[in-house]
């Protein structure tokens, strides 16, 4: 029996798990402010321009838009997978399967994001060309870094998830809480990255 678990509906959370949740929420609020700052900058620069996108910037190619839509769907699906992975206690291999699915979505997202940039570089749209281009690459690039970070963090949780699922030696109760806290915190981060993408998508492609 694991002393505390992340599902508050069943068993009371271990104090450390609550600490971690609060800490993670604070971190995400704080980091969300960085995103908000970038969106604010976008708004300020965008509303100063008489025409947006500027006249000398060709419209985004159709496949870039398709990539973006696909990425949006991927992000939403990945969040659903993740919700499933942690929907119940983390003691079955199915969590690992769902986390794997989430990671796959993330990988494809990154791949498509890189494709997007390549697609735009080919006709010669670079970051240093003008404010519009700078903002485009900044917002998409900044978000992609978070996706990459999220993937690395998932890899970091995998040994713990394995141990929780009963593959290999059984963790001590203390270790188990540790693993759960880690997995849950990373999942919060991923949901945040998902929401951040929806905002980025709306800002970059629809304003």
């Amino acid at each position: 029996m694991i002393a505390g678990t992340v599902d508050s509906k069943r068993v009371a959370l271990a104090p450390r798990a609550i600490d971690a949740r609060i800490g993670m929420m604070l971190f995400l609020a704080s980091w969300g402010m960085v995103f908000l700052t970038l969106f604010f900058s976008y708004a300020v620069l965008r509303f100063q321009a008489p025409v947006w996108p500027p006249a000398d910037v060709p419209p985004l190619p159709t496949n870039v838009k398709i990539f973006a839509w696909t990425n949006t769907i991927l992000m939403i699906v990945s969040s659903v997978f993740l919700k499933n992975a942690f929907g119940r206690r983390l003691n079955s291999p199915r969590s690992i399967v769902f986390v794997g699915a989430t990671m796959l979505c993330g990988l494809v997202f990154l791949f498509l994001q890189i494709e997007t940039w390549l697609e735009l570089w080919r006709p010669g749209m670079y970051m240093s060309d003008g404010t519009y281009q700078s903002l485009f690459y900044l917002l998409t690039g900044f978000h992609a870094l978070h996706v990459a970070a999220g993937l690395l963090l998932f890899i970091w949780t995998l040994p713990g998830l394995r141990a929780l699922a009963g593959i290999g030696p059984r963790p001590t109760a203390d270790r188990a809480i540790h693993y759960e806290v880690r997995a849950y915190s990373v999942s919060m981060f991923w949901h945040f990255v998902d929401v951040a993408w929806l905002a980025t998508f709306a800002v970059v492609y629809f304003t």
Partner: peptide, 14 residues
């Protein structure tokens, strides 16, 4: 600190 230093961080990134 948690809410407003990130604004400077964002500005510094730019």
């Amino acid at each position: 600190n948690a809410l407003f230093l990130p604004v400077l961080t964002g500005g510094a990134i730019l």
